[in-house]
């Protein structure tokens, strides 16, 4: 960490010696930040006004007085006119889906990577290539056959139907495999001499050493799971298992009767869990980096 900071600090120091370049740097940076932050700011502000403000076509840049009312409305009742589901329910569904996808993906991929990287068994390379090839078959490509299978199994409108088809992950498997290959053979052998069997070695050595990788994947996969749209759209028709991404889209009316203040409040709420995960896991991530590096 210290090194990274130094290497970033150096160019800034150099720019400081030249006031004009310094100015330019700052202008560019401020523009960049505005560009990224402005839409979020508008959404945040919009969610604190009443229906009329946005309806008139204003774009409020300052907070309004309706924040509490708007947020409690969507949280508890959702979009009344459309008989929508409360946002709390949708957030809950999304959280379940994202978490189970994340845990499922990590669990399955770390175990398959462990098998492929550490054991020699007949057909090992065949399995490896089979996993590798599925990289070319993301959900979008196999969506209709997958839907057929899920509906034949009677899993439409269930959490299982929502989650299971998304769990297998070639990417995560390959990442873990690459990482496992960097674990020195002598460490494996030392553990063998100490009497650790495959499961103990996995639990006591491989898992702790993978903490950093797991944390990074957790962030990536959680955001992936949270943002899923196409598959939930297809496989959920009942409001019980509706996710927030579907909910937001359903809130957008077609004839200009959209309640923008509520949509914005919902959007802000939908933004919170991924942000929280990133912030939370980032600390973990750094800790993992510091503790497991050799």
């Amino acid at each position: 960490m210290a090194e990274a900071r130094n290497s970033i600090a150096a160019p800034v120091g150099m720019a400081g010696s030249n006031p004009r370049a310094d100015m330019l740097t700052h202008v560019v940076l401020v523009l960049g930040v505005l560009l990224f932050a402005l839409p979020i700011w508008i959404v945040l502000m919009g969610s604190t006004h009443d229906a009329g403000t946005i309806g008139r076509g204003d774009v409020p840049l300052l907070p309004g007085a309706e924040a509490a009312a708007n947020y409690s409305a969507v949280w508890n009742q959702g979009n009344k006119q459309r008989a929508g589901v409360p946002v709390s329910t949708m957030m809950f569904n999304s959280a379940i889906m994202a978490l189970l996808i994340t845990f499922g993906k990590i669990a399955i991929s770390i175990i398959s990577a462990y098998a492929v990287a550490f054991f020699s068994f007949p057909g090992r390379m065949l399995f490896f290539w089979a996993i590798f090839i599925t990289l070319m078959l993301p959900v979008e490509v196999r969506i209709f056959p997958t839907f057929q299978v899920v509906s034949d199994l009677g899993l439409v409108n269930t959490y299982a139907g929502l989650i299971v088809p998304l769990i297998a992950s070639a990417t995560a498997t390959l990442l873990f495999r690459q990482f496992f290959l960097t674990i020195p053979d002598e460490l494996v052998e030392a553990a063998k001499m100490d009497g650790a069997g495959p499961i103990r070695f996995f639990k006591d050595v491989v898992l702790p050493l993978s903490a950093t990788n797991i944390a990074a994947l957790f962030v990536i996969l959680f955001v992936y799971g949270w943002n899923q749209y196409l598959w939930p759209l297809l496989v959920t028709t009942s409001t019980d298992v509706e996710t927030i991404m579907i909910g937001i889209v359903k809130m957008l009316g077609s004839q200009g009767d959209t309640e923008w203040h509520l949509v914005m409040a919902t959007t802000v709420l939908a933004l919170l869990p991924p942000v929280a995960i990133v912030i939370l896991m980032q600390r973990w991530f750094v800790k993992g980096l510091v503790e497991t590096e050799k």
Binding site: E186, L187, A190, K192, M193, D194, V205, P208, T292
Partner: peptide, 20 residues
Amino acid sequence: LEPAARDIAMVFQNYALYPH
């Protein structure tokens, strides 16, 4: 026999300590 069943200890060239 497996290494563990032989009651032998080994010191490796690069030490092979558990880093964590």
